[in-house]
Nucleic acid binder design. Structure first.
Lengths: 109, 109
DNA sequence: AATATCAATCGTAATATTGCAATATAATAT
DNA sequence: ATATTATATTGCAATATTACGATTGATATT
């Protein structure tokens, strides 16, 4: 198979998993950190910073865009990326809600 | 290729990506939610709850164990799973630190 | 107009993931 | 001892992901 059975899970579970999948790669974490660190939009110097080919970076950026974690606007010949503020906040809250449902009080196992 | 170039990233980036990968599947999110909801340890009623085969659940549990998000102890004939409290807290803090480095103030793009 | 530059896309190879049936293993019960 | 129950492992097929060279498309620059 190799195909996730999305139909047996809730929409929330599927959505959270999808965003986390976009985050779950060191290159994409590095890209996001880089975008955040240079607090203005970052144009495509990512290829120089990370040790990956231009095609690969472009692909990772696409996935981050699909997950709506970043947005890009064309700036002349290059493209300008930045965090999607609303969706970033939403993820932060969703994740915190999920992780906070566990109250580590009861001793078990 | 198909092989992540871990050597060009920091250890923190690789580790965070790895834990997120373990979280990034709806079945594993559902499993974690189920373990958390029944605040005692949960034994293998997961197979009945989710609509996945026993082998598949077992595999997902293994990945969550590898990521050290859960721990299991043998309880007679069955196994008892629960959240790994320290690592869960650690993930919560790591993720929050990462997500909070973005201060959504400056308008861009 | 010709050329340079930047980023997206296509095509491809290598590897990873997902899911399950079948089988194996381990502990208890009879 | 043997059967039963619960979980793990193996092996496999289908699909997804990662990475990159080559190409394409779009905008500047000359």
């Amino acid at each position: 198979m190799g195909l996730t059975k999305t139909e047996i899970f809730t929409e929330d579970q599927n959505k959270l998993a999808q965003v986390l999948k976009a985050l779950a790669h060191p290159a994409r974490i590095a890209i996001l950190q880089h975008i955040i660190a240079s607090n203005t939009c970052i144009c495509g110097d990512l290829v120089n910073e990370l040790g990956l080919a231009q095609a690969t970076i472009s692909q990772h950026l696409k996935e981050l865009k699909n997950a709506r974690l970043i947005q890009g606007t064309i700036e002349g010949v290059s493209v300008c990326y930045c965090i999607h503020p609303e969706n970033w906040e939403a993820l932060k809250h969703n994740l915190n809600d999920f992780l906070s449902t566990f109250k580590g009080s009861t001793q078990c196992c």
